[in-house]
Design a binder for these strands. Structure first.
Lengths: 352, 352
DNA sequence: TACGCGACTGCAAACGGTTACATTCTGCTG
DNA sequence: CAGCAGAATGTAACCGTTTGCAGTCGCGTA
């Protein structure tokens, strides 16, 4: 039943002729251990191939050195890169990452209740693009959960977010600057159960840019592409089927833009003449098809979120009695990781 | 220092007026607990918002309910989907996943030594496309590590692999069937430090197919594309610069094929007339550009690997004294997840 | 009525570390 | 030489579960 266990700290202590306390101190590099003793202990540990049992250490210290990463999916272009950035940063700092996709509502339910239990499971949580209600967030905060959010903000927790209003605005403005008056948009899934806020903000930026140019918003010009290439293709077909299609198109992700591009191609049309298209993200393949886009930096974002969480963990660890500052510092949406990258799909062949 | 902890099993026991043992049994659904007692305990636990501390449970049982997933990267098309499939399956079975990219040699070193320690950290490991030597594998096996490999096989551990020779053969044969005699190949990184076996096998399949048709292999027709879109593009440029370029091209991943396609486009050439191209994977964007490909099923593969690992864990748990069958069952490369998907890039417009 | 047998329940010993506190051992200083 | 500070080490009490074993209790049976 019980699976065979490796050497314990006691074995090392016996072999090295010291107490377990000394072994613990020696192996963890704590002070007040004679150099010769430390060396001997290290040798013995090495020869016995001893490693401290993490579960035991966690139980004793209350620190797990584990962080949970929750994203809508783990295999999307954006999220997989976010995860890569976060995980790399965590590993560098001695933490391991538990990844946890939260897609359908059922999973979400379980996720939220699990989250309350998370304090014992992990040292902190990074929640990406899952709109957690202020109420839930508050509950988590009071349960003592350390968390950082990304892609959305709450009152309680620090957040790492790009200014998605700005993203939508810049993309739309780019089309406006090129003289387009009739601009359509392929958005995400409007009634998605997780309804993350990103699409809404980007849409607001789109609307805002139009308004700033005195252009009325035509709701029929918005089509949902579900954030997939195929969804983008179908949305584009609906748009091309319109009696009066737009001349410019803001697509909320490069993947959907690829789909839109292929629909355009299939009808023998080409950009930017027949339709100018701008996407979001700067997918590896965007330069290959010449897609204009708003470059995001999911990897850097992920790393930033991880960094923020680590300092949060450190702060709370060093001073439990510190002023219980009920709220994370005001986090403002950053434009730091947002760059307009114009390519053929909007400005045409640019030789010169 | 010590972070505040939540309610313990003792609190529940006191509140419910029973012993901790009973609480433990009641909450875990073990038999020999009176229905009324169980209900009462559950109520108390609920009201106290009690959850068993995983670290303590792990220490006591020796089971972590944790699985480590090691892949070269986590944000590639193939690997991210493999991970998604594996993680979903693990979560369904009450396990959590620690993901761990292993890219550069330095990471690899640390990874291998960490792996030896893994027995206490996790219940099992899934190692994807990292060529672990038989020697290392043996060491791991004797250390009692439970592992499943994917993309490569060892003597010791069960493996989940697709027949990559077959993949290369089928792709090349497809081009041969279409009448191509001069067939090039864009491969992965030949001298990659991790040198996983997949590219080698695919290349062997390519060579084998050519040989079977009595065609000599021209080494100059092989170019490395580093498994990236941009690498594929550059490799294609080198190929197009040749005095006598091939008429058919086998590209070892769809991502590289996209790059090749764009290089083709840039020169005003088109497929399949100027060059017939077949990729591997069936990326979401493959149908959009009409790329012929060999469809793989990374998600299903990941799920299969997870499943295999879970049964391995279960087996060893139920019978420690069972015949120490020193080797995993013979695992043969499967062709189960391999499908030829011909599209325009090789067979041209197919109306009819 | 005495007995035996399940079904329940409790006691207490692991599990393998960490760490506050006590103790021992130095080498110096006055 | 006594006294003492400080470094090095040991002792033992946790951390919060699980689980083998020993009771306890109720009840049908001889």
């Amino acid at each position: 039943m019980q699976r065979e266990r490796g050497p314990s700290i006691e074995d090392v202590a016996r072999e090295a002729g010291v107490s377990v306390a000394t072994v613990s101190r020696a192996l963890r590099g704590l002070p007040n251990v004679a150099a010769t003793t430390r060396a001997r202990v290290e040798d013995v540990a090495e020869s016995l191939n001893y490693r401290a049992d993490p579960s035991a250490a966690r139980l004793a210290t209350g620190q797990t050195k584990l962080v949970q990463l929750a994203t809508p999916t783990i295999d999307g272009w954006y999220f997989s890169r976010f995860l890569a950035g976060a995980i790399d940063h965590l590993l560098e700092n001695g933490y391991e990452a538990i990844t946890h996709p939260v897609e359908d509502p059922a999973t979400r339910e379980r996720f939220l209740s699990d989250l309350l239990e998370s304090k014992k499971r992990v040292d902190g949580v990074i929640v990406v693009d899952l709109n957690i209600s202020e109420e839930s967030a508050n509950k988590l905060w009071h349960a003592g959960i350390r968390a950082v959010t990304a892609g959305f903000a709450t009152q309680c927790f620090p957040a790492v977010i790009v200014d998605d209003y700005h993203v939508g605005f810049v993309a739309t403005q780019h089309l406006l600057d090129l003289g387009h008056k009739r601009i359509g948009v392929i958005s995400g899934e409007p009634n998605h159960p997780l309804a993350f806020s990103v699409p809404g903000l980007r849409l607001a930026g789109y609307t805002g840019a139009l308004a700033a140019s005195g252009i009325a918003v035509d709701p029929s010009l918005e089509q949902s592409g579900h954030f997939t290439a195929d969804g983008g293709r179908r949305a584009m077909e609906r748009i091309l089927d319109m009696k009066n299609p737009p001349t410019g198109l803001f697509v909320m992700s490069d993947e959907m833009a690829f789909g839109a591009w292929s629909a355009l191609n299939e009808r023998g049309l080409s950009w930017p003449e027949d339709m100018a298209i701008i996407g979001i993200g700067d997918h590896e393949l965007a330069p290959l098809v010449g897609l204009s886009t708003i470059r995001l930096a999911p990897r850097e974002l992920g790393a930033a979120a991880a960094e923020r969480l680590l300092t949060l963990i450190a702060e709370r660890a060093e001073s439990l009695t510190a002023k219980a500052n009920g709220a994370g510092e005001a986090t403002e949406a950053s434009q730091q990781w947002v760059t307009l990258v114009p390519r053929e799909s909007t400005i045409g062949e640019s030789d010169g």
